[in-house]
Computed example of a mutant assay.
Amino acid sequence: MFNRYNRLQGWSNSPLTETGMADAERAGRKLASVSFTAAFCSDTTRAQITAQTILRCNTASDPLPEPRSDMHFREQCYGYYEGQDMAAAWWAAGAPHGAGTYNEIVERFGLGASRDFLHEADPFHDAESDGEYWKRVEGGFAIIAADEGVHDGDDVLVISHGNTLLSLMHRYAPQGYDLSERPRNGSVTRIDFDTSKPIDEALSVVAYNE
């Protein structure tokens, strides 16, 4: 719902709209023939419903995995700026550094700076810094790697959030992807995760924003 109002939506739990439900159904149809060994999702309601909807459409998994919810798969935490107008929040973060919009912050200083600037601007400093953010996200991949039921070559469903997906692309994608286009709600991105390697080398992007 916050997307409709152009408000920051990280750890806050606004509900899926009818469009959001349709996005989940579309993703479910696209992935219906994929046999998933395991499924993980953010513990926000919108992610949990999306995971349940995708798995309900699935005809290939036997048995059908139960999605495991965990806070490590959440979107970035925007702290004091949760639910606030995006333009106003990014102005507060970037203007002291001479960048008045989110895109300008990223273009001039990088995606990591957008998190650090918002953390700095947050009067409570609850918005995640870049370091805090990646420590949590890497914890999510550690949870997947520790699952004894998942083996080399298995397909695993992970439901997270748009800015987290974009952040993974900025960090791990090879050249050639247009990252000025944000991932669409309900889109599918495929990532290979080699659990034998350290996390900085373990992820490689196969396809983005399908």
Results as ranks from 00 to 15, higher is better:
Tyr133Phe: 15
Gly131Met: 11
His125Asp: 04
Gly149Tyr: 11
Gln84His: 15
Asp147Tyr: 06
Leu118Pro: 09
Tyr133Asp: 01
Trp90Lys: 02
Ala95Tyr: 11
Gly83His: 01
Asp147Val: 00
Gly153Asn: 00
Ser129Tyr: 07
Phe141Leu: 12
Leu111Ser: 11
Gly162Val: 07
Ala145Tyr: 06
Pro96Tyr: 07
Gly112Pro: 04
Val158Gly: 05
Glu120Val: 02
Gly149Lys: 15
Thr101Trp: 12
Arg136Pro: 13
Trp134Leu: 06
Trp91Ala: 14
Met86Pro: 08
Pro96Glu: 07
Glu120Asn: 13
Gly162Thr: 03
Thr101Asn: 10
Gly162Met: 03
Phe124Met: 15
Gly149Asn: 14
Asp116Arg: 04
Asp126Met: 15
Trp91Val: 07
Gly153Glu: 07
Ser160Leu: 00
Ala92Leu: 14
Ala146Lys: 10
Glu82His: 07
Ser129Val: 03
Arg136Thr: 00
Thr101Gln: 11
Ala142His: 12
Gly98Tyr: 08
Ala95Lys: 13
Gly98Asn: 09
Lys135Leu: 14
Glu132Cys: 08
His161Tyr: 07
Glu138Ser: 11
Ala146Arg: 09
Glu120Ala: 14
Val156Gln: 02
Ser160Cys: 04
Ile105Gln: 10
Ala99Met: 14
Arg136Gln: 05
Phe141Asp: 06
Ala127Ile: 02
His125Gly: 00
Phe109Arg: 09
Asp85Glu: 13
Glu138Asp: 15
Ser129Cys: 06
His161Thr: 01
Pro96Gly: 11
Asp152Trp: 05
Ala113His: 10
Asp85Ile: 12
Ala142Thr: 11
Glu107Ser: 14
Glu104Trp: 02
His119Asp: 11
Ala142Ile: 01
Gly100Phe: 14
Gly162Leu: 01
Ala93His: 06
Ile143Phe: 04
Gly140Met: 02
Phe117Lys: 06
Leu118Ser: 08
Glu148Pro: 04
Arg108Leu: 12
